[in-house]
């Protein structure tokens, strides 16, 4: 099962110290089809994570609305699941126990939990590691556990908040490949947030480029690359380079604007 996400004029304003207001995201209009892999890319502080919190139902938009499969989001729920950059694994539980945690939350009976957790750990390539605790696993393996947990309770939408940002380059690339494989197998709608251009081009069917402060959607770039599974060194193909350059150009002004803004704030 998967569902589409629709942003309709979504804005989020936060109160800040001194009675001022900070517009994190402003007038976001974006439609993500069911089963699509969409990537949001933008400079730091452009409100990417705010947008994800809004879809997750952790915060409420100040204006506009977000529709999930045509129904407005009213709060958090197991039809969406988030993969966090910091893994968010329970350190006292084993890999198996962590995957079961999500299943417990939605009330899957104990008997089924065990089998389901094993199945999803196998899906992310962690068969044989069920009884390991998070501190006994590498960063990449921890994120695999977190992905297994997110998928195990069969959400309609997978929200990913810079999930590979804390990993080394090699691990990141192999997890990106793996994620695409899993996405093709499960057919989930994925909303993936990153500040990495290459990551965005490699993963996304469409890449939405965001402006900095306030965050708006500057452009949506459809990525049409040959089948990623077949082409072994996709990243060095001319098409890949062309897309990377396109998004880089779109982002370039935003990054320098964001840096200038940060300098000004630093001076105050």
């Amino acid at each position: 099962m998967s569902a589409g996400i629709e942003f309709r004029g979504v804005s989020k304003v936060f109160p800040v110290r001194g009675g001022d207001e900070l517009t994190a995201v402003d007038g976001i209009d974006l439609e993500i089809a069911a089963g699509e892999f969409a990537v949001l890319v933008g400079p730091s502080g452009c409100g990417k994570s705010t947008l994800l919190d809004l879809v997750g139902g952790l915060t409420v938009p100040s204006a506009g609305e977000i529709l999930l499969d045509g129904r407005p989001v009213r709060g958090p729920g197991p039809d969406r699941s988030t993969v966090f950059q910091q893994y968010a694994l329970l350190p006292w539980r084993t890999a198996q126990g962590n995957v079961e945690f999500g299943l417990e939350a939605i009330g899957v009976p104990r008997r089924l939990r065990r089998a389901r957790a094993r199945e999803y750990l196998e899906l992310v390539g962690l068969a044989g590691f069920e009884e390991r605790h998070p501190h006994e696993l590498s960063g990449g393996m921890r994120q695999r556990v977190a992905i297994a947990r997110s998928l195990a309770y069969d959400p309609e939408v997978l929200l990913m908040d810079e999930p590979f940002a804390a990993l080394d380059a090699q691990t990141r690339e192999s997890l990106q490949e793996e994620l695409l494989r899993i996405w093709r197998r499960t057919g989930k709608t994925v909303l993936f947030i990153t500040h990495g251009i290459e990551e965005a081009v490699y993963l996304g069917q469409r890449v939405a480029v965001m402006t900095s402060r306030p965050g708006r959607v500057k452009a949506v770039v459809p990525i049409e690359l040959p089948d990623r599974a077949a082409d072994r060194d996709l990243r060095s193909s001319p098409e890949f380079a062309r897309y990377r350059h396109e998004i880089w150009s779109l982002l370039h002004d935003e990054v320098s604007r964001a840096q200038q803004w940060e300098r000004e704030v630093g001076r105050v």
Partner: peptide
């Protein structure tokens, strides 16, 4: 308690 764990719990609507 690690705030990311609390976020996880909230997103699961515990």
């Amino acid at each position: 308690v690690d705030p990311t764990l609390l976020r996880l719990a909230r997103s699961l609507d515990l």
